[in-house]
Design a protein around this nucleic acid. Structure first.
Lengths: 136, 136
DNA sequence: ATAGCTGCAAATGCTTTGCAAGGCC
DNA sequence: GGCCTTGCAAAGCATTTGCAGCTAT
């Protein structure tokens, strides 16, 4: 059949990214299993392991493309490595300092009060709470 | 006089770091003017500009030493560059995405409610709120 | 004297980029 | 066909490290 539906192809088309083999492979890996926190290197390994060939550069490019398209969100933990989150809605994170992993905290779990006004001519683009954790 | 008091030498001695010329230069630059947010490269420039010679590697080493000693604190914004904060007590930050600068938010300004329990065998080591801002 | 520190240059780790070859519409 | 995308290798950037020489105690 000509019009076989492919969810992942559609995702890409919707944001005007050509559904190339590589991008479809990446997108299906990224979005086929609930919310995830993604590191480029890790994603690359997974994809290679699954038998598909995609270069690391393309992984980076695609993650950036998807982020610009609003399909991913960069988490602002400082660990010299970028984390991309498939959950693009507002929420917070535990950051495990030992194994450098992220755990979601639902947005409404934490109540914030007293967020100060930003400086003149600036507007708030993001409010992020990072709760760092380590072993007891 | 033998026992000339030097505040910055004392700071170093207290944390068991030898008060070498380079470290004294750095420490005095860092702590002589209220709370600051420091980038290694910037600090290096400032010190060179003031006429003192210190290598960039030593700037990095010293910033790390001071951080381990508890005199500085690393801020966890994700900007591919480490920020060290002279204010080591709990407080939060605006992060200006345009000029990559930090602005302090006093700790008690923002009230947090509902911080979730960390996973088993983990304890919270830090709670940090980063409010990203950009131009209107 | 000697343990610790510095500075250079090289190495590292993550990420981006230039460009020729290839693939999608 | 034409434009976008890929992949490689090289470059980029912030940071760390190895090591020989120097310095504080």
């Amino acid at each position: 059949m000509k019009h076989k539906k492919n969810k992942y192809v559609d995702i890409l088309k919707e944001v005007n990214l050509r559904p190339t083999r590589q991008r479809v492979v990446l997108v299906s890996n990224i979005f086929n299993s609930g919310n995830r926190h993604i590191k480029a290197e890790k994603l690359h390994e997974e994809v290679l392991f699954s038998g598909e060939k995609v270069s690391l550069a393309t992984v980076y490019n695609t993650l950036n493309n998807l982020t610009n398209a609003g399909l991913l969100r960069q988490v602002k933990v400082n660990s010299n490595q970028n984390y991309f989150d498939t959950n693009t809605s507002a929420h917070h994170h535990f950051f495990d300092e030992v194994n450098h992993s992220l755990i979601d905290i639902p947005h409404d779990k934490i109540k914030l009060k007293g967020i100060p006004k930003p400086p003149i001519n600036k507007k708030i683009s993001d409010v992020e709470i990072i709760i760092s954790i380590k072993n007891k």
